[in-house]
Design a protein around this nucleic acid. Structure first.
Length: 207
DNA sequence: CACGGGATCGTCT
DNA sequence: GACGATCCCGTGT
């Protein structure tokens, strides 16, 4: 498997990159424990003008600073005080775009994922949802600001040239109550019919 | 399956 | 001091 090069993350079109990220393989090496999964759901967040994007809402703060870095590194933050969320930072330096990884389909170490999740979950109950993804892969706050394009990084992304499935798009999750003209944009992507895709909104569109 | 509430705390105003 | 780019469990149909 080939690692995805840094150049992939430099695109100025975060929406296209979010779609292109579908089907790639996210792997973590947490103190020697390897787990991986196919990325089956993503969401694009655009720093320039997107009222749902942290870097647009808050500007450059201690937390969001990593979003302003050159594309190809991770942005991990905590939501609701409990859940970790991992994003792929894209675009060139100071253009603060990011892609939220919302669901993976386990490839390596499913037993480890089950143990980390603390239950016998199947399908999207195991890894469909951004908090679940981080739990499965053992990603915590220390996973912030790490490169995806380096074999030796604890978090890396690989290409799978055999991947060839239908990609669907919908509005993003958790935006509806926000005052945002971008709330209705189809900036969420997922693999059609994949059982690991998170449940919200899916049934409305995937038929 | 739909809906609602509670958990829980880092981050920003 | 308020609020989440969530998850899980309980209740009702």
């Amino acid at each position: 498997m080939q690692i995805v090069p840094k150049s992939f993350y430099q695109s100025a079109d975060v929406v296209s990159t979010a779609k292109a990220l579908i089907g790639k393989i996210l792997q973590t090496n947490i103190e020697g424990i390897i787990t991986s999964g196919r990325i089956v759901e993503t969401e694009a967040y655009r720093g320039a003008d997107d009222k749902g994007c942290h870097s647009f809402i808050h500007g450059k703060t201690e937390r969001t600073a990593v979003m302003f870095e050159s594309g190809g590194v991770s942005y991990v933050y905590i939501c609701y005080g409990i859940h970790h969320m991992i994003n792929v930072v894209t675009n060139s330096i100071s253009n603060a775009d990011a892609i939220l990884i919302r669901a993976i389909e386990p490839i390596e170490g499913e037993e480890i994922m089950l143990a980390r999740r603390g239950g016998k979950f199947k399908n999207y109950y195991l890894s469909g949802g951004p908090g679940k993804v981080c739990q499965c892969l053992g990603i915590e706050k220390s996973g912030n600001n790490l490169p995806f394009y380096d074999h030796n990084s604890p978090i890396s992304i690989y290409d799978d040239k055999c991947f060839n499935e239908t990609i669907m798009s919908t509005p993003r999750v958790g935006m509806s109550h926000r005052v945002a003209e971008y709330a209705n944009n189809h900036w969420r992507f997922y693999v059609k019919g994949n059982p690991y895709v998170s449940r919200p909104l899916l049934l409305k569109y995937d038929y």
